[in-house]
Each structure stands twice: as C-alpha cells, then as structure tokens.
C-alpha cells in the first residue's frame, strides 16, 4: 500500500482527507502565518453540513456571523485578502439580512482553495517539515 505521505503529494484532497496530513499541513501553515486559510476552509465545509431546520437556525446564524467576523470582515486578514470583493459583499448581505443558505460560503471556500492549491500546497510539498516527515 502507498504510504500516506506519498498520497498527500497526489492532491490537496488526499492531504485534507487524512488526519496526520492535516496536522502536518496546519503546522506548516502556522509557521507561514496562514493557518487561517485552512481553518476557514474547514469552517466552510462544517457550515455546509449543518442542516437548515428550525431547531438549527439560531446556531447557523450565530455560526455564519462568527465565520464572517473572524475571517471575512477583517480586511487585513489572510483569508479576507484572498476573497474577491464581490464574494465578500455577497456574504455580508446574507449575514445582515439573516438569509443564510448552506452554500453561503461556497464561493469563498472555492477561492481560498485555489489560493491553497496554487501557493501553500506546493510550498508545503517542498518544505523541510514535509521532507523531514517523509
């Protein structure tokens, strides 16, 4: 069988599908000062999993606000700087109008995923932290 660390090099998806891979990648991102990219990516996935039913509405709204406040609102933050202005406006509108679709963060997640795939992920595969692990 292929060792996990070789699978991690196959695709970002393989890396993010493995607990050890996530842990190592997050350690790397933390060193680079951009662990928020990964946290945001998982927060978007977690939010989408929350079912929009009556008993969940308060939680969903609170969570959407928390994600917005922590990652999107702060224009200096690494996540906010990588999300397109139109995408940020869309999220802001949804949060302010309290119309929170499960897919509200999907576009932002896609944009952050592209940033990770184009920048952080290739750098990780060349990093000391990954090479030492292998």
């Amino acid at each position: 069988p292929t060792p996990p660390y070789l699978r991690w090099a196959g695709s970002l998806h393989s890396l993010l599908d493995d607990q050890d891979g996530i842990h190592l990648f997050r350690t790397f991102l933390k060193q680079e000062g951009c662990a928020d990219l990964l946290d945001f990516w998982f927060a978007c996935s977690g939010f989408r999993k929350l079912e929009p039913c009556e008993s969940n509405e308060e939680k969903r709204l609170k969570l959407a606000k928390a994600i917005y406040k922590k990652y999107v609102l702060d224009g200096q933050g690494i996540v906010s700087r990588q999300i397109k202005p139109a995408t940020k406006s869309f999220i802001k509108d949804c949060v302010l109008k309290q119309l929170i679709d499960p897919a509200v963060f999907d576009q932002a997640q896609t944009e952050i995923q592209s940033t990770i795939e184009e920048n952080s992920y290739p750098l990780f595969l060349k990093s000391d932290i990954y090479l030492e692990y292998t």
């Binding site: 993010l16 996530i22 998982f42 927060a43 969570l63 928390a66």
Partner: peptide, 20 residues
C-alpha cells in the same frame, strides 16, 4: 466571545475526517 470561538472550533472539527 468564548462561545463564538467554541462554535467555530466545533464547526471546523465537524468537517475534519474522523478516521485514518
């Protein structure tokens, strides 16, 4: 603030793979 952070952490953890 704490409960917001807890909610966020719970959300992030819920999206991570559970088993290896």
């Amino acid at each position: 603030i704490d409960s917001e952070d807890d909610l966020l952490q719970e959300c992030i953890s819920s999206a991570m793979p559970k088993k290896k």
